[in-house]
């Protein structure tokens, strides 16, 4: 565990807290992509259910895995049950088939072993890389976003972004290199770059997130 990895994980926790805060205080899920949230639930289920076959690295990892699976299911519940009337499915129209299908193909091409757990892990890594796209698509379609929603997306982007210096550190300090995670992680971070540009030049200077 190094500082970049720790800050990345912390940022991931903060992003989920921001999302829950937005929904519970405004009692709405307006502007939030159910599809992105469903993809994250699938990402966590396919990656972290390795708990069931004994992949227990540390209490830290186990606690985080349980938290991410649990919170993602709770978020889906909030969107689908109490805040259902506030969701507008007509703007959440990104085609999930492409993302899930693409991740499936990538998991069959790029994995460390042709075994069910390894392919599942690789699938979760590739799917995570693109899971934010339906959310960014909503922001692009509506041309604006509530500040709290942009803080959520920014914290989520910072999470995988911070894993990159973590991998550099681990490569030089520990000789550790996980090419699949690194390549997918870089793709994931690149997907956020447009968003981050507007976030830094507008939202952090007190303006509303609006596309030009």
């Amino acid at each position: 565990m190094n500082i970049f990895r720790f800050l990345g994980d912390l940022s991931h926790l903060v992003s989920i807290w921001l999302l829950l805060h937005k929904m519970t205080t405004s009692k709405s899920c307006t502007g939030i992509s159910f599809k992105t949230q469903a993809l994250y639930a699938l990402v966590f289920a396919t990656r972290y259910l390795d708990l069931l076959y004994g992949s227990w690295h540390s209490m830290y990892n186990v606690a985080m895995k349980i938290f991410f699976i649990g919170s993602s299911l709770y978020i889906l519940y909030l969107i689908k049950v109490p805040f259902k009337p506030t969701r507008d499915p007509a703007i959440d129209t990104f085609k999930l088939e492409y993302l899930v299908g693409g991740a499936l193909i990538m998991s069959l091409i790029a994995n460390y072993e042709y075994s069910f757990p390894e392919i599942l892990w690789s699938f979760s890594i590739w799917l995570e890389a693109v899971a934010i796209l339906p959310q960014l698509f909503i922001i692009q379609r509506t041309g604006e976003a509530e500040n709290i929603t942009t803080h959520y997306v920014a914290a989520l982007g910072a999470y995988r972004g911070l894993y990159i210096p973590n991998w550099l550190y681990r490569y030089f300090a520990e000789g550790f290199f996980d090419p699949i995670a690194v390549i997918a992680g870089i793709i994931q971070t690149v997907i956020y770059l447009d968003f981050f540009y507007i976030y830094f030049t507008k939202v952090l200077k007190g303006q509303k997130f609006e596309l030009p």
């Binding site: 992949s55 690295h57 985080m64 460390y112 390894e118 892990w121 973590n166 996980d178």
Partner: peptide
């Protein structure tokens, strides 16, 4: 010995 990276990352 396995060449697989240990999956301790989240």
């Amino acid at each position: 010995e396995s060449e697989k990276p240990a999956k301790d990352e989240l």
